[in-house]
Amino acid sequence: MISTRRAWLLCVLLFFSAALCFLDRQVLSVLAPKITAEFGMSNTVYSRVVFAFVLSYTVMLALGGRVMDVLGTRRGLGLSVAFWSLASAAHAFVTGPFTLGVARFFLGVGEGPGIPGAIKGAVEWMDPRRRGIAVGLATSGAAVGSVLAPPLSVWAERHIGWRGAFAATAALGAVWLVAWLLAFRGLPHAATTPVAGARPTSSWRSLLARSEVRRLLAARFCFDPVFYFYMFWIPQYLAKERGMSLAAIGALIWIPFVALEVANIGAGFVSDRFTARGWPQRRARMTLMLVAALMTPASFLAALAGTPALAIGLMAVLMFAHGIWITNFMTLIGDTVEPGDVATTVGLTGMCGGIAGMLSNLVIGPVVDHYSFTPNFLASAVVYPVAWFILRGGRPSR
Rank of each mutant, 00 (worst) to 15 (best):
I2V: 13
R5P: 00
A7H: 06
L31N: 05
L31G: 07
A32M: 04
S42Y: 04
N43K: 04
S47C: 00
S47Y: 08
F51W: 13
F51E: 11
L55W: 10
S56E: 11
Y57K: 09
V67L: 15
V70H: 12
V70N: 12
L71V: 10
G72V: 09
L79S: 11
L86M: 15
L86T: 14
V94D: 08
V94W: 13
P97R: 07
F105Y: 03
V109Y: 09
G110W: 07
P113H: 05
I115R: 07
A122L: 11
V123N: 00
V123L: 03
E124R: 15
E124H: 11
M126C: 11
D127M: 08
A134H: 01
V135H: 01
T139K: 03
V144Y: 05
V147P: 05
S153C: 05
V154K: 03
E157N: 13
E157Y: 09
A170H: 07
A171C: 11
G173Y: 00
A174G: 08
V178K: 11
W180F: 02
L182G: 06
L187N: 03
A190T: 13
A191E: 08
A191Q: 11
V195Y: 00
A196M: 13
G197M: 12
R199N: 08
P200W: 10
S203C: 03
S206V: 10
R214Q: 01
R214I: 02
A218S: 11
F223T: 10
M231Q: 15
F232Y: 14
Q236Y: 09
Y237L: 14
K240M: 13
R242W: 06
S245K: 10
P256T: 11
V258H: 06
V262D: 07
A263I: 05
N264V: 06
S271E: 04
R273A: 07
T275V: 15
R277T: 05
Q281Y: 09
A293K: 00
P297M: 09
L301F: 06
L301Q: 04
L304F: 00
A305P: 04
M315I: 15
F320H: 02
H322V: 12
F329N: 14
I333W: 09
T336W: 02
V337C: 06
P339H: 02
P339L: 09
V342W: 13
A343I: 01
G353S: 01
M358G: 02
L359H: 00
P366Q: 04
V368C: 01
Y371P: 00
P375Q: 03
N376W: 09
N376G: 00
N376K: 01
F377V: 09
L378W: 08
L378T: 04
Y384E: 09
Y384M: 15
F389W: 12
P396T: 06
